[in-house]
């Protein structure tokens, strides 16, 4: 469970995130939409404790991230826009390394099975990662999530740059995780993917979460209209300096 409570971040006079309140429950996929600089990545970075909040709290499984950054990381997996792994190690070895750091070192057989289950071709599993495509690396990322049995997943634009096939595969893997009661927070530019995959959708602009709605309450074309209107509208401009 991921909870943001009045989460604020500013850099001097620049506001990156203002009073973010949201809740991602187990089995939710919360998709954050917004233009570049809207605060999506800031929100995720705050959950990851890559940066410290100016005020408010980011809470993972009831633990405040700022107070206890290391222990919250046991419960989450992070997949950045560009998931880079150690090129000299194979997919299997990377999985074992990162899962092991998280305290859940799988034996080789389990690790193999995990990579197989996320759809990595068998012959690729023991190849060095420097030969992997981005989609393959993202799959290893999911496998790490599974190995750690983390119940929270933070994704920062994971599908940008993936071809439609890979993107579709990735969505399926997310759905599987959701069914296993994982709470997923994902920043994305992809309206279509958000509508298809997400259970909840938030639209951000200039550091503020403007709309927050359930995915099944809205149609795709309505979502698009709402998004474009939010981006155009001046009514929220006051938040920006």
């Amino acid at each position: 469970m991921l909870i943001a409570r009045d989460l604020c971040k500013d850099y001097g006079s620049t506001v990156a995130l203002k009073n973010l309140n949201l809740q991602v429950r187990p089995g939710d996929i919360y998709c954050l939409l917004g233009a570049n600089g809207a605060g999506k990545t800031t929100a995720i970075n705050l959950f990851m404790n890559f940066i410290e909040p100016t005020s408010g709290q980011a809470i993972i499984n009831g633990i405040d991230v700022t107070d206890n950054p290391q222990s919250t990381k046991k419960h989450l997996v992070y997949i950045p826009e560009n998931l880079n792994l150690y090129g000299n190690l194979t997919g299997l070895e990377n999985l074992r390394f990162f899962a092991g750091l998280g305290g859940a070192l799988p034996d080789k057989k389990t690790a193999y099975a995990l990579l197989d289950s996320v759809g990595l071709q068998k012959e690729a599993i023991s190849r060095r990662v420097k030969e992997y495509s981005k989609g393959m690396r993202q799959k290893v990322g999911i496998a790490i999530a599974r190995a750690k049995m983390a119940d929270n997943l933070l994704l920062d634009e994971p599908t940008s740059g993936l071809d439609p096939q890979a993107s579709n595969d990735f969505a399926k893997l997310l759905e599987e995780l959701r069914q296993k009661e994982v709470a997923i927070l994902m920043a994305t530019h992809d309206l279509f993917r958000a509508k298809e995959t997400g259970t909840h959708i938030g639209i951000m602009r200039a550091g503020v979460l403007i709309h927050s709605l359930k995915a099944d309450e809205i149609k795709l074309n309505e979502l698009e209209d709402l998004y474009l209107e939010t981006m155009k509208s001046n009514q929220y401009a006051a938040t920006d300096h």
Binding site: Q70, K73, V77, N82, N84, G87, F98, G102
Partner: peptide
């Protein structure tokens, strides 16, 4: 520069 830093930071190990 290799991009693995953020992944390391996401781990419960300092």
């Amino acid at each position: 520069e290799g991009g693995t830093l953020s992944l390391l930071q996401a781990q419960p190990v300092s």
